[in-house]
Amino acid sequence: MLEQLLARISQKGAVSLAELARELDTSPALVESMLADLERRGYLELVESCATGHCAGCSVKNSCQTPRMWTVGRRAKRNLFVEG
């Protein structure tokens, strides 16, 4: 199930949480806890938004209330997609 999730996000660009839940035949809540789990293990990385410190005085910091986004983490790149 987790491999399916990782494989899915390595294929295409953005996929929404709701769409992932539909494809894995589960609920967004469970997908969210899978994402948290995978993030903790380094398979996914939570994309940093404006909390990186160089946003003081930035005129678009309001736009930084962007949705949470995850990208493929180092561990997944190393173990799942590059080597095999």
Binding site: I9, S10, Q11, K12, G13, A14, V15, S16, L17, A18, L20, E32, L35, L44, V47, N62, P67, R68, M69, W70, T71, V72
Partner: peptide, 20 residues
């Protein structure tokens, strides 16, 4: 790069925040 995105719930605009 590939992404998973969480789409937030729609909400009524808060004009005080928009004003800021």
């Amino acid at each position: 790069t590939a992404f998973i995105m969480e789409l937030p719930l729609y909400q009524l605009p808060n004009f005080k925040e928009i004003g800021k």
